[in-house]
Nucleic acid binder design. Structure first.
Lengths: 250, 250
DNA sequence: CGTACATTTGAGCAGGGTCAATTCTGGTGG
DNA sequence: CCACCAGAATTGACCCTGCTCAAATGTACG
């Protein structure tokens, strides 16, 4: 028993530390598949509002890297962030995409367990762990919220396992599009139009596919008149019912 | 927007309820990939010890089904349980395998989000949600433990996403064997021998493979002298280092 | 000891990957 | 305002890993 990169990483879980993963505190969590937890940034009852301070990151910038000492948690205020893990040889699995309200870096470990990078220009609130701890001590209700948000993330992660382990390429892509669409639900404008700020290879690494397969699958959906691909990373869902059928659950 | 089995299930996450998933409260959690949390059954400090009551389930028995009203949480005292989700057409994804100390059924939703079945004869403690709530209110430290356990599960779930999305069949099987081995770490006897009480199709549905591929892969590992397959669902790890290399991280 | 089911093994196939060329897109500078 | 350029996306051709279908062992329990 020696060269256990595998086992070593696994053992992290046993570390009685703090700050383990990402989590979101509102309903719109989920796209992240075990990642983002929205805690309404501007909610009057937002207990995090006064903690830490916000900073703007430009697009394609690293916020923190897997293995870094985990001293803070972060909350996305606007923009989009991707979280991923990499295998030693460079294969990448994107754990999730975070949007406004989602949190990351939350965990009970000394190091961050994945890398966080911005997809678009993003405003991020950085909250020192100590401040978060203090808030949890002071407001038991907040601790409950964190727990609730974390279990929501876990549910999303489980759905993602079904997707990765048992869905076909077409089902994966259809599911992904519907999730994205659900995410930004209530908003303004055409509710059939969704934003795809991330590149094809990001989508591929999130769905366990290659960029080529993602592209081909989108092309097929376009030919079938289920979607329309617009310029500028936007896309119309022309037939949600058909997409939902294709997605096959979740 | 109508036939959204997908979207409906997804929406569950928004339900402000309780009791969402499974979680474990000790280091040996992890095999579950987003599932079991061990809370030392016989630990003197076990705050759950006096709650609910235990029951013995025989092998291959359903404990609860996805969609059932979620009135209780459960803790495995001995034996093994599998948790899974199914797609409408019957494809199955096993979320994780639970062992002694692992909890399940914990969630912030009104229904169970997956099905739990025993693999072997299993003793399970059933704890009404109300009792768990009361405990959380009475012991803030316990609530913290739950949060810690849940984030551990989330970490495990993220590792499982990497496995499902980016690993080859051989890497998946090697990773699985090492995880199983780590799980029951400290125990007695030959630490190279591990128990595989679940069938090949359970392993397959956990790793996103077919039974045939799992079988073939194990045969190859056997031919390469990395493992030895014993009767009675046992198996020897003959070369952990080689397996760890094969597993490629985590 | 026999039967039912699980596992293994075999043969052939296909979904999605790889490698590579072409087209688009968006930003930049003239 | 437009031509140019670099990177992204798309498309094509071919291949391989892992799946399907099927048959042959193994194994456990009554």
């Amino acid at each position: 028993m020696s060269t256990h990169a595998a086992i070593a990483a696994h053992a992290n879980r046993a570390v009685p530390g703090y700050l383990v993963s990402a989590l979101a505190m509102t309903p719109n969590a989920g796209l992240g598949a075990g990642v983002g937890a929205a805690i309404q940034p501007r909610n009057p009852a937002d207990p995090l509002a006064s903690l830490g301070h916000a900073k703007v990151f430009e697009r394609e910038t690293t916020v923190f890297t897997e293995g870094d000492a985990a001293g803070s948690v972060f909350r996305v205020m606007s923009g989009m962030v991707r979280l991923y893990k990499m295998l030693p040889d460079g294969r990448r699995q994107i754990i999730g995409f975070l949007q406004a309200g989602d949190m990351m870096g939350l965990a009970f470990a000394a190091q961050y367990l994945y890398t966080a990078e911005t997809v678009t220009a993003t405003t991020i609130q950085r909250i020192p762990r100590l401040e978060l701890d203090a808030l949890m001590d002071a407001q038991p209700a907040f601790a409950r919220k964190l727990l609730s948000a974390t279990t929501s993330e876990l549910m999303a992660a489980q759905d993602q396992m079904v997707l990765l382990g048992r869905k076909t390429a077409a089902e994966k892509v259809a599911t992904f599009l519907l999730r994205l669409s659900d995410r930004k639900g209530g908003g303004k404008g055409d509710d059939r139009t969704i934003d795809l700020p991330m590149g094809r290879s990001d989508i591929a690494d999130h769905l366990g596919l290659t960029t080529e397969t993602v592209s081909r699958t989108l092309t097929k959906l376009k030919s079938s008149r289920l979607i329309r691909i617009l310029v500028g990373g936007k896309l119309d869902l022309l037939d949600r019912d058909a997409l939902a059928d294709l997605a096959g659950g979740f």
